[in-house]
């Protein structure tokens, strides 16, 4: 059955999915002793809502289903959250997860299209995802898809918005009237070198997006039900491209990461840190 959304999980089940995703994220980056846990943990509720909240219409048994919604990771370093989610959604076995970043694995350090199936776009160079989405949306329009088919969700980082190409894409999406596009901003206020407000201010980012002709929603990015609702609202809008600005914490769910996000952009936890992280994720502390 490839024509409808997977049944949406209830509120409690969504919280449980978030825990499982977080567990995979810290285990994966621990096994690899590298990778990007901070910006994966901040995007956990976003991915849980997309894949388990009945937002994205997709079929793990048929990843190439033509009229599927596409979820695109523009901040292509946050692979742990993508692989964790796709495995939980049934795209591939969770047994693959420990191979993350090893020689010959499907689970490459940065996203690679169709590796594993379900990954829609290669990335790792910031700033390209929204433009790719503009192309996909134009294509879906030309293919004559129904209004609510072939939606495109693009997860963007706030540091990533430093790249000018994003603003070219934002401009063209509204110019071409591409309502199928929903950008999801992981607004965790940190980037590679530290705090975004010190490195390159992007605020008032919602106003900027609105000035470019997009519909804008602000939401608590760790309230998974709220994220789901905002995404469903955006999905249903057929007048303009939409952005959901998710207020998040880099490293959310693991105290020593959330308290020191700059230190946890791109490295894996030690054995002791993994144990602590797993305990905290289980307890649902944040």
């Amino acid at each position: 059955m490839t024509t409808s959304a997977a049944p949406a999980a209830d509120a409690e089940a969504l919280l449980d999915v978030c825990k499982r995703i977080r567990r995979h994220i810290v285990e994966m980056t621990h096994a690899a002793q590298s990778g990007h846990p901070g910006g994966s943990l901040s995007a956990t509720e976003i991915f849980a809502a997309l894949y388990f909240g009945g937002v994205a219409r997709h079929d793990p048994a048929d990843p190439q289903w033509e009229r599927r919604d596409r979820v695109i990771l523009s901040k292509g370093h946050a692979t742990p959250v993508v692989y964790a989610t796709l495995a939980e959604a049934g795209y591939f076995s969770t047994d693959l997860i420990p191979t993350f970043r090893s020689l010959g694995t499907e689970l490459q350090g940065h996203v690679v299209r169709n590796k594993p199936p379900g990954v829609e776009m290669s990335g790792g160079a910031l700033g390209m995802g929204l433009s790719f989405a503009v192309g996909v949306a134009l294509g879906h329009q030309l293919s004559g898809f129904a209004e609510d088919e072939g939606q495109i969700f693009v997860v963007v980082g706030d540091g990533e918005l430093n790249e000018g190409q994003n603003w070219e894409a934002i401009m063209s999406a509204s110019h071409f009237g591409l309502h199928r596009i929903t950008a999801i901003l992981d607004r965790n206020h940190f980037q590679n070198d530290g705090a975004g407000d010190e490195i390159m201010r992007i605020d008032p980012v919602g106003d900027k997006w609105a000035a470019f002709g997009w519909g804008v929603q602000h939401v608590d990015g760790h309230d998974v039900a709220a994220v789901r609702d905002a995404l469903l609202t955006a999905r249903a809008r057929a007048d303009a491209p939409q952005v959901v600005i998710c207020k998040t914490v880099k490293g959310r769910g693991v105290s020593f990461m959330a308290e020191n996000p700059a230190g946890w952009h791109g490295k894996g936890p030690s054995d002791d840190q993994l144990a602590q992280a797993l305990d905290e994720i289980e307890a649902g502390l944040s």
């Binding site: 690899a32 590298s34 990778g35 292509g76 370093h77 970043r101 490459q108 350090g109 940065h110 690679v112 290669s122 990335g123 790792g124 160079a125």
Partner: peptide, 8 residues
């Protein structure tokens, strides 16, 4: 560069 892979 190692683990980051092709794009890096």
């Amino acid at each position: 560069v190692g683990e980051d892979g092709a794009s890096a």
